[in-house]
Amino acid sequence: MPDTPPGNTPYAVRAYRPEALREALRKMLLIRKFEEGAEECYMRGLIHGTMHLSIGQEASAVGACMSLGDDDKITSTHRGHGHCLAKGAGVDKMFAEFFGKETGYCRGRGGSMHIADVAKGNLGANGIVGGGLPIAVGSALSAKRLGTGAVTVCFFGDGANNEGAFHEALNMASIWKLPVIFVCENNRYGMSVPTERSTAVKNIADRAIAYAMPGVTLDGNDFSAVAEAVDGAVARARAGDGPSLIENVTYRTRGHSRSDRNRYRSRQEIALWTERDPIPRMAKMLVSHGVMTEDDVEKMEAAAADEIASGIEAARSAPEPGVEDATRDVYTVHSEAME
């Protein structure tokens, strides 16, 4: 990817104040450090289950949330740590959830795959590919019917675009002109099968034509490009003009999940995409436009690392949920008859 030519100021630098840009970089760093920290905890045997890391996809998560407020909603995926942090969740409660603790966002009931900070508008990561798509449309329907002015950003992966739910959801969002932005994070593989082998169209955004909505494919590792596309779609949604489909082409440098042995892709391919890492690109953009210095970036990275370390420490000593409460929160009103 070529550096931004001098004089051609990127959208992000034009659109956002420096504090917002620094905060965006801080979140990207935090996501990276968070996932690296979680990965280390997993390898040390401190966390059980599995997790799906989004290392390499941070620009998509943070860029898509730039113009969202707490009233706006997102639906997330099984690879949802970045979305959660981008939408404003705290590291401590996220780690507590990873460790299965009562103090976690889901009180230890959800774990990595269902992590959500509902207060910040995150309706939840989802363990089912495509599960969040119709839910996002429902959320947009609520906003329209109740006149809240809120929009819903629906994150989903390339794999979900071949689920029936994707097509049904896009169709309904379009016929009802609902304020929803479908953000596809195309990281090239549905577990192991590449999109070329699973998807009939070249670009997933090409599917937008079928549902009469704008569709755009872009470099998902370019923070500014993501922010620009999503901001435009959000404005369109808020104006009552209906949904959009945005395809962020990106890459996960880690495997699908912790059990992935990368048999379906080459080391060279991983190395190539590692060079396109969105975080150094974002840092370089901010430094080159005088938003911050290299030293600021280093300090920011160190601060993020510290925040992660203390989050892990706090989570390790947080209380476990009581086994006697295992059936709590199945229903809103607890009753013995439901057990």
Binding site: L123, S139, M172
Partner: peptide
């Protein structure tokens, strides 16, 4: 005629105030 999508829209709507 989209039972999965329709049901999901209903779930999302219920989740967010309808």
């Amino acid at each position: 005629i989209s039972e999965l999508g329709g049901a999901g829209v209903a779930v999302g709507a219920a989740l967010t105030g309808l």
